[in-house]
Design a protein around this nucleic acid. Structure first.
Length: 436
RNA sequence: CGGGGCGUGGCGCAGUCUGGUAGCGCACCUGCUUUGGGAGCAGGGGGUCGGAGGUUCGAAUCCUCUCGCCCCGACCA
């Protein structure tokens, strides 16, 4: 992509409405623009990141056998009356009336919708287990939206739903999602800590919030140091027994804010980590609450009726964009982990109009594109300082700077955004590093 | 929903208390000079002050109502 053509309206000054760093940087980098309180448009740069995150989530869901579908944003009120949540949900639910005066709503979640669909189709125990998910916009009419996309009213979310024949099956599904979540966040360069959450009316211990650590997180959390170590996750056999993996996490102390136990923390000594966190995922088992309401019942092997045991699993995809920035930035701007970066490398032409510089940049730009590297070429006729500042702001993992001096010396300047390390190397060497 | 704050060119703000017909920086346009970390000089365009009503000879400034946004709290992926 050429920056001269790319729609990326960066802002030098800090917009006054943005308080936290991710919100400020997303506005300044031209990733989003606010439409109204808690509702945002995603500009090209922001959308690229959103899509990257979405894709990682999708791949890890697919890896545990969940199947993607897509349910509507607008749902009929009757669906929610069946589960008795229409009245229970309160003013957070955005209620709409259509032209025929039918009560509709903008979905805050999809348990009812998916259960109705599943119930209508599943007849035999052979139809289970199943896991279905979709990645869709949701709306919760928060009283007080804030923190940009971290706490918007409209938000993009992955929600998965599992249907199993019995509790043991539900537990297997739960464990798969548990491990998938660990892998998902790890791939985004995040340290995610599963924390026991209020499991609601069902009870038991099958409800966890996944909290990522960031200095600017909303709440303070305490946990055992071992929970930060999950390098071995990639070697897990997803078809094997995941209980031991899950146990290795849930056995250890981890608690948010008011759940913290200072006695336990004191006993941990050096193993205690206290940090700030942002909740980015929530998984829980809720049994037959919805399967009963929607008659999600199948015939068992012996002709008996079996009500599906269900769980649901959410990840705040749009929130993660802000969350990753909270966890990875410096005074100059964003520092994207490579896996979610909008482009892998920014190529800066320091002297647009200079034949040598133009040629060197065009050649390298072409070669990187041919190699399948996502590259953003700053070919704007702007001052060097502005280009450096913008490139640091948008936080691409690598920068290649080409100016008259470098061209003469037959090198390019190769910079790592995260470490700030620069080296002068040949264009070929830069390509080699970027394609490694 | 309780408490607080703010709406003035695209952005950030001053002016409001003590009414007199709008100003600064950045951005933008033109020219010249510059050209490795958001340039310099000169010239220029753009706002009727969130909206409605009222008081007054006169309102960005005072009064009433209203809309929007932000912050703290309670609540949440």
């Amino acid at each position: 992509m050429r920056l001269s053509r790319f729609f990326m309206p960066t802002i030098k000054e800090t917009p006054s409405e943005a308080q936290i760093v991710s919100h400020r940087l997303m506005l300044r980098a031209g990733m989003i623009r606010q439409s109204s309180a808690g509702i945002y448009s995603w500009l090209p740069l922001g959308l690229r990141v959103l899509r990257k995150i979405e894709q990682i989530v999708r791949e890890e869901q697919d890896a545990i056998g969940a199947q993607e579908m897509l349910m509507p944003t607008i749902q009929p009120a009757d669906l929610w009356r069946k589960s008795e949540r229409y009245d229970a949900y309160g003013p957070e639910m955005l209620r709409i009336t259509d032209r025929h005066d039918r009560d509709m709503l903008y979905g805050p979640t999809n348990e009812e919708q998916v259960t109705e669909i599943f119930a209508d189709a599943a007849k035999s125990y052979r139809d289970l287990p199943k896991m279905l998910y979709h990645i869709q916009w949701k709306f919760r009419d928060e009283v007080r939206p804030r923190f940009g996309v971290m706490r918007g009213r409209e938000f993009f979310m992955k929600d998965a739903y599992s249907f199993d024949l019995d509790f043991e099956g539900a537990k297997r599904s739960y464990n798969k999602q548990f491990v998938a979540y660990l892998k998902t966040f790890k791939r985004m360069g995040l340290t995610a800590i599963p924390m026991k959450a209020d499991s609601g009316p069902i009870g038991g211990d099958m409800s966890h919030e996944f909290v990522i650590l960031a200095d600017t997180g909303e709440s303070e959390v305490g946990c055992h140091r071992d929970l930060l170590e999950n390098e071995w996750l990639n070697t897990i056999d997803l078809e094997g027994d995941l209980q031991v993996v899950v146990d290795s996490f849930t056995d250890k102390y981890a608690a948010t804010d008011d759940e913290r136990d200072l006695d336990i923390e004191g006993s941990l000594g050096d193993d205690l980590v206290v940090a700030r966190g942002i909740e980015v995922g929530h998984i829980f088992f809720f049994g037959t609450k919805y399967s009963k309401a929607f008659n999600a019942v199948v015939t068992g092997p012996g002709g008996d009726e079996i009500t599906a045991e269900m769980g649901s699993y959410g990840i705040g995809v749009s929130r993660l964009v802000g969350g990753i920035i909270e966890a990875s930035h410096d005074d100059d701007g964003i520092i994207w982990p490579e896996s979610v970066a909008p482009f892998k490398v920014g190529l800066i032409n320091l002297k647009v109009g200079d034949d040598e510089c133009d040629k060197a940049c065009e050649d390298l730009y072409r070669q990187l594109q041919d190699a399948g590297i996502e590259v953003l070429l700053d070919d704007r006729d702007a001052r060097a300082g502005a280009k450096f500042a913008d490139m640091d702001l948008i936080g691409l993992p690598w920068q290649v700077v080409i100016g008259p001096k470098a061209v003469e010396a037959g090198v390019v300047e190769f910079k790592n955004r995260a470490s700030g390390d620069r080296q002068e190397i040949s264009a070929e060497a830069a390509i080699a590093q970027l394609t490694a």
